[in-house]
Every structure is written in C-alpha cells, then in structure tokens.
Write a protein that binds this DNA or RNA. Structure first.
Lengths: 170, 170
DNA sequence: GTCAGTTAACCGTCCAGACGGTACAGTTAC
DNA sequence: GTAACTGTACCGTCTGGACGGTTAACTGAC
C-alpha cells in the first residue's frame, strides 16, 4: 500500500535475515528504513503489528507463487526446485524472515508457513501424480531453503536435485 | 565434564529450541538449570563462551554420529534419513540450537555446521557411490530437519523419502 | 589430629545500557 | 484540514556482566 510501509517491512526483513531477531529492534528497523521511530509506530502501532504485517506479506507472495507454479511451462516440480535456490527474491526474503520470527512466537506464526507448504505440496502432486515423489521433491526444496536460511552454500544442489527428479520421472 | 556444566548447556539448548534466542538469556538459562547466575558465569564467563560451549558439544556429537553412520548395518543413507526425523535426541537438540545461534553470530558459528554437512555427505557418497543421489538424500534429510526446526509436522516424510531412495537404488 | 591456607564451585546483588512503548508538539504535502 | 510523518523526551523492564561474598573439600605443617 504505502511506500513507507513497504520500506519498513523491507528493512525489518533485511535485519531479520542478516542479523537475526535480536538485531531487528524498532529503533534499528526505523533507522534502516530511514524513518523516525514515531513514523514506524504510526504505521505499525506495536512490534507484534510489524510481525503480522510481515506474515501478511508472505501470505500474498506465497499465493502468487503457487499460482505461478501451476502455470509454469517447465512444470510445477522443476519450477519449485528452481525457486528454492533462487534466494534474494521477495518471496525468499519473506519466507526466511517468517521462519526467523516463528521461532519465538510459536503457533500462529507457523500457521502461514504450514498452509503455504500444503499448497505447494498440492501443486506438486497435481503435476507428478505420485505422493511419495511429490513429498520427496518438496523435501529437497525444503533442504535447499534450509541451507539458504543458515547461510550454507551448497553448489550443485539444484543440478543434482533436477537430475534425480528426471531419473524418478523417467 | 562437569555435571553442572552439562545441565547449563542442556538448559541453554532447551530454551533456544522452545522459545528462540530472545528467551535464552543468562537469567533464564541459570534458572532452568537450577543454578544461580553467578554459578553460570563461573562455568561460562560470558554469553559468547556459553555459545561456544554449545558448538563444541555439537562438534563432538556430530563426529560420533558420522562414525555411527559409517558403521550402521542398514546402510549410511537409511541411517541418515532415519536420524533426520528422530528429533529429540542429543544431536538433534544440539543441531537445532546451533542453527538458531548461527542466525545472529554469522560466519564462525556456521563453520561447525558446514563441516558437519561435508562429513555427512562424504559418508553418504561412500555408500551410494553416486554424487547426485548422495546429494539428493542429504537434501531430503535437510528438509526434514528444517521442518523439525520450524515446528512443522510432516507425517509420512520418512516413509516417502525411504521409498524414493529404494526406487533410486533399485 | 588438627588447623591455617588454598582452591573449585557457586550465590546474590548491583549497575549501565538497551529495549518496547508512550506522549506530544511541531512540520510538510496535498 | 488532514494524513503522513519528524524529533525529543520520557518510563518501566530486561539484559549482560561485574563483583564481593560463601561453602565445602582438600593439602600440607606442626
């Protein structure tokens, strides 16, 4: 909606990703977004509201990605694996930030992540028509995300995952 | 070594896993270990020392697991996948705690995780003799860990991963 | 055999700074 | 005039860490 609101969420996510939950203080977020603390609290009256705004952003980006996955010319599975390594995009940033937030606030925070996972699985199953294979593809994608989240570089992961997918399909 | 030292590390890991880095304060760790704050700081003179103690514990448990993996009768790959879902054991707890810690402290904290990953990969490769397959198995294991870390329940993940592994072997 | 001295293991309190949040009086752009 | 801010000054609480005790086991001298 508002440009400042988006800048604040960008800054919040950026701090969460780069330096973790401890670094994502209200002062730090405001400073990173080049907004005063009062300005931040104008848009998000509390830190919980800021976290909820982040979850809403993730839900929107996630829904868009599920739609793009179903429409992908290379197929849902390949699209999914490819996206799992392409860290740096808006969805990846939102996902990593949400995972970081979920570690503290428990249930309601993971609900968005849970539902998104189910939707991704459904899209994979629709294309692959094989529950175990769909599950395996999703797990490999999760693994690549996991490595991205923890900062672990894993060269060749995408190629090998795609190669294994091809074997299983063939 | 010391029983109190171990209790402190247990408490530290427990808080990191259940409520995240923000909850794992010196006071909270001391209280959970039923030790005074002064007692905690006797064993670990700073919070950084506490985190390093945790990493050292992970390195020890990890080395033991790699050895157990190579000696597993069901094979390294099956052992690895099975262990990836068995959350609650000492190694899993240490791993999750280390991942949480790594989000803040950056490079040197991820070094232990990085090296452990390489060792696991080597053990998988030694059994499977197939780089892409070894990589895929590791990614599926990572994915299951990732879900355990974020509190996502994923029933049937192990069975499906093992089924896919059997297909790829056969 | 006992008794001062040492040391490891731990307790409880204090403090400066950071944190989330409040309050509110201005300012700018439309 | 109203929405969207800025800037400053606060408040109460929490946090990491410093610090000065305390206790109990051990050690050697006499």
């Amino acid at each position: 909606m508002s440009a400042t609101r988006d800048r604040l969420l960008d800054a919040f996510e950026g701090l969460l990703i780069a330096h973790g939950v401890r670094a994502a203080t209200l002062d730090a977020v405001a400073a990173a977004a080049e907004v005063s603390k009062g300005g931040l609290l104008y848009h998000f009256p509390s830190k919980a509201a800021l976290a909820q705004g982040q979850r809403e952003r993730l839900a929107e980006l996630g829904a868009a990605d599920v739609a793009a996955m179903a429409a992908a010319p290379e197929g849902a599975a390949e699209y999914y694996l490819r996206e799992s390594t392409a860290s740096g995009g808006p969805l990846d940033r939102a996902l990593i930030a949400a995972v970081r937030l979920a570690e503290e606030s428990g249930d309601d925070a993971t609900a968005v992540l849970d539902e998104l996972r189910v939707r991704w699985y459904d899209a994979l199953l629709a294309e692959l028509q094989d529950p175990a294979l769909a599950h395996a593809v999703q797990l490999m994608g999760d693994g690549m995300y996991y490595n991205a989240v923890t900062g672990i570089r894993d060269p060749g992961a995408l190629e090998d995952a795609l190669a294994v997918l091809a074997r299983l399909r063939g």
